[in-house]
């Protein structure tokens, strides 16, 4: 029972408290360039979630059962970027061949994911922190759900930002950054909520 609770807590903590975009700063590039339409940002979030979980499933055993016994841990970054880049290409290949409808909604974002800092960031920090396999899966699931949540919420806010009469200099990115700061402060409050548990 305790394992199950700590699994859920790990997902919750890396989803809300230690959010990948707003407090660990992996994945700001797609977060700032997120488009106004909610369903396109949802599509991107799903594509990133799928790739993050698949990447952790491959990168963790690759590190612990291949690189560690061989003693060449310093090659972990090269291995992870190769895994993530080939994953993106294989997923793209798979979608292109078998489901054009899925390609229509997700296909645009696939080349972006390779330069997305969140995917490599999660895979790298999982093994740097020395998490066990179960915990790194929980961390990956929590992080990608957190990324999805923040991207969708931010794209809805950005639609409202267009109509707000912000000063001329703040139009566009600066006002988006200030709203992201307010969102980060809100998430910082959550840390007190789990004070006793986490």
């Amino acid at each position: 029972m305790n394992i199950f609770i700590s699994f859920i807590l790990a997902i919750l903590s890396s989803m809300l408290i230690d959010n990948v975009v707003l407090s660990r700063f992996y994945g700001i590039c797609p977060f700032l360039g997120v488009s106004k339409k909610v369903n396109s940002s949802f599509g991107m979030g799903l594509a990133v979630t799928f790739v993050i979980i698949l990447a952790t499933l491959i990168c963790w055993p690759l590190y612990n059962y291949v690189l560690l016994p061989a003693g060449i841990q310093y090659l972990d970054t090269v291995a992870y970027i190769l895994v993530i880049a080939s994953l993106v290409q294989l997923v793209g290949l798979f979608i292109k061949k078998f489901s054009p409808s899925l390609y229509k909604s997700l296909g645009i974002y696939l080349p972006l994911i390779t330069t997305n800092c969140a995917v490599l960031g999660v895979a790298q920090s999982n093994t740097d922190q020395g998490l066990t396999f179960l915990n790194s899966i929980a961390n990956a699931v929590g992080t990608s759900l957190g990324f999805l949540l923040i991207i969708v919420v931010f794209s809805t806010i950005r639609v409202r930002l267009e109509s707000a009469n912000t000063p001329k200099a703040f139009k566009g990115l600066p006002i988006a950054l200030i709203t992201a700061a307010i969102m980060a402060i809100a998430l910082m409050g959550l840390q007190g909520l789990f004070q006793g548990l986490i």
Binding site: V66, A70, L75, V78, A79, L82
Partner: peptide, 12 residues
């Protein structure tokens, strides 16, 4: 182990 690891990386 080293040879195995390097071959896996080259395969990747």
């Amino acid at each position: 182990y080293i040879i195995l690891a390097i071959s896996i990386l080259v395969g990747l």
